[in-house]
Nucleic acid binder design. Sequence first.
RNA 1: GCUCCCGUGGUGAAACGGAUAUCACAUCAGUCUUCGGAACUGACGUUCCAGGUUCGAAUCCUGGCGGGAGCACCA
Length: 546
Amino acid sequence: MAVAQRIREEIARVFGVPQEEVKLEHPADLKNGDYSTGVAMQFAKRLGKNPLALADIFVNTGPIDGVEKIEIAGPGFINFYLAANTIADSIKTAQSEDMWGANENLKSKKIMVEYTDPNPFKEFHIGHLMSNAIGESIARLSQFSGAEVKRANYQGDVGPHVAKAIWALAMKKPSLLEISMAYANGAKAYEENPQAKAEIDAVNQKIYDKSDPEINESYTYGRNISLQHFEILYRILGTKFDYYFFESETGPRGVEIVRTHPEVFTISEGATVFQGEKAGLHTRVFLTSKGLPTYETKELGLAEMKEEKWSADVLISVTAHEQADYFKVVLAAMKEVMPEIATKIRHISHGMMRLPTGKMSSRTGDVITGESLLKDLIVAAEERAKDSRATSHHELAEQVAVAAIKYQILKQASGKDIIFDRERALSLEGDSGPYLQYAHARACAVVEKAREQHIEAKAESVEPSELARLIHRFPEAVEYAASELEPHLLSNYLLALASAFNSWYAQVHILDGSTDAHHKVALTAAVARTLKNGLWVLGISTPEKM
RNA sequence: GCUCCCGUGGUGAAACGGAUAUCACAUCAGUCUUCGGAACUGACGUUCCAGGUUCGAAUCCUGGCGGGAGCACCA
């Protein structure tokens, strides 16, 4: 931001230190100013002066454009208070410009984000919901930073899991319900019954080489049903993919890559492996002893296919934590066989959703699928939506349900596990997605009423209140979240903003007929736009009435 | 056993090495419903243990304890 940059330059100039070493922060407490720095304490020893003397030197060097007041506080903090018109300018922009908060830090960068990645013939589970929420938000964060973004979905339509389902389906044309049960039955049989295991392995082979017409038919039919069903979920979640990749395509591709690099991959116990030990990792199988590609090999094929489809500058993949180590080995191998693509890859791994009692387990029935969670939430939201002002209660319920679930995922650092508490998840109050949506709808209602009463929004000379200063921080909150690829940094900001707005709303009467009403309307409109844009980045919709 | 991640009020989380550690849920006490109560105000209560680095440590380093994930033909 312009003001922040000027402050940083001035500090570097006065103290004669490199700008990168100047740390400027937002004090947690607005009483301590809009920006603050501890440089005086940090450099005291190096410059041979005590912190307060250094801070004093700086304060007396003269004014900085856009800053009204510079104060020394505590042991030597230097606090900057922005000028009223600097804040007012931000409010004006927030209130009048659609793209308020956007930046061009990633301008002309091409970024492909791969996420969600559910597998046909299996349930859409909570991990997919997490990947979807995080991936979509990262895609939008990148777009909001000026990048050109493509969304990719990579689905496992071949492999043992599919063979298990097909085997249990006994080659018929399955319904959706039959499919979801088939995988579980097949997986159980595979473990418990040696004969079933042999049969399933055979089916697996036949799916790869497409040699059995009966299996082909059942497979094609079931695959389509699964994929079509996923589309319904993507629509509700608000994701529109540009590219779909399938393991049935990346597999052969990967096999080719592995075969043509015998200097990288070695044979061990009949399997083709990559010895990750040379990179401080562990050995992993790339081709099974039967010659079939594993996940690792498919990943190599995928990278090549992505590059062909749309050559991006950065390739982001969002997957669960448990895959982090596999990914490292794949990346190490990739560095040897296709180094130019390997350098573009960035893996984001997220935690898992766990029950308070421990890990979810399908064996004990302690499992909640992503789909059932979504459905339960929609039911709960519908109950609440009964007496809402929205025109379509069902549509609103869907929006609120998705907000609740996405926010719960995006409000905490993405690497950490989420403890799933049913009651908390279904709660639509407090620190929740619907709370943010509500604050937005409320602000919209006030703006609408002001329009009816012909009370214009005037941001000029708006008072630099705490709420106004918080709004001013929005573009920086976006930049911060984007640079860390951490949506929760933005969630935290939005919650603070919504909370400050609700609190302010309870204290003042906005449309009170006074001359100040124009300013209050401007502030309200600025809050509405900020929440709208911020929630968009999180992938959460903002109904105007709820 | 080895590798990686994590440990913050009763519960779930936040805090780019900074100021009195923040927020929500729960509990208790209020607002009273004049612009939308999916709201607001207040009370209660927290950095696993022991060292170290630093002007300053929840954060960095070492050791311990506790939890999770991964470690060869699944994805």
